[in-house]
């Protein structure tokens, strides 16, 4: 990892709680991609969660408390980059939490102006050349809902993956339909969630792809966990891992041999 130049954009990485806890490799891949693109990356220690579980459960007081903490923690960066459309989307909702508090509303809007989902940041802000990675095989892409509908992420990952000559991307039917994760939804209504993820898996396997990619770890863990339970041999990875050429760790949910 080379040190970025002094005028390099200072990026605060919001790593997300799922990546931090379950899949640190996505965090390292993100840093790798950002640094290769000439950014100076910092990981503020005071970060935890974006507050989405509280927000989507109607606990607005706790959501506000967490939002203030995120706003404070990331106040000094040129950009805040998140390897998740869902969590980036949550940061984008902060201003509406402070409709009655001018100061925090202003600070929340300021944060929104600097906050980007990773794949969108690489293409829409940094306009990097799609990296040529050693990844090979037949891939399919699941468009996670928050990234897609809230942040408009659809073409960006496809554009980035097009730089690798040995990746064949096969689109699945209904790639933009929810996989049934939905945060706490999948544990509150597990049977409905199961039907939804089965539908997604039907579309994934119909493509014959050997690897499923996506930009949100929540959805990917849901799909990977179900694929694993069904014994379906489809590898699941976060797009950042592939784009960073970081393919040595086992795919998400793959059983470790020890």
């Amino acid at each position: 990892m080379g040190e970025a130049a002094t005028n390099a954009p200072r990026v605060g990485l919001f790593v997300t709680c799922l990546v931090d806890f379950f899949r640190p490799e996505v965090g390292f891949a993100t840093v790798n991609l950002l640094e290769s693109a000439g950014c100076h990356v910092d990981v503020p220690e005071a970060q935890t969660c974006c507050g989405q579980p509280a927000y989507n459960s109607g606990d607005l007081d706790d959501t506000r408390a967490i939002a203030r903490q995120v706003i404070e923690t990331f106040s000094a960066y040129d950009y805040v980059v998140v390897p998740s459309g869902s969590c980036a989307g949550q940061l984008h909702k902060y201003p509406e939490l402070f409709a009655e508090d001018d100061d925090w509303h202003r600070r929340a809007r300021d944060l929104v102006g600097r906050t980007w989902e990773l794949l969108s940041f690489l293409t829409d802000v940094l306009a990097i050349d799609p990296p040529e990675t050693p990844a090979r095989g037949c891939f399919t892409y699941h468009d996670s809902c928050s990234g897609l509908r809230q942040l408009g992420i659809h073409g960006q990952p496809r554009q980035l993956l097009a730089g690798s000559p040995d990746i064949e991307l096969r689109e699945m039917d209904d790639s933009t339909v929810c996989c049934g994760f939905g945060g706490t939804f999948c544990v509150k209504y597990p049977e409905i969630s199961e039907r939804m993820v089965d539908e997604k898996i039907r579309n994934i396997t119909a493509t014959g792809a050997d690897t499923l990619l996506g930009g949100d770890l929540g959805c990917l863990m849901n799909i990977a966990g179900r694929l694993q339970r069904q014994g379906k041999p489809v590898a699941v990875r976060h797009a950042a891992e592939v784009l960073a050429g970081q393919l040595d760790t086992p795919p998400i949910g793959a059983r470790e041999t020890d």
Binding site: F22, P24, G27, N222, T249, G253
Partner: peptide, 18 residues
Amino acid sequence: AWTAARDLPLPSAGGTFQ
């Protein structure tokens, strides 16, 4: 509720990202 229908992907070896 999660593991009724899915395996739970385990955290990677080596600790949290932080």
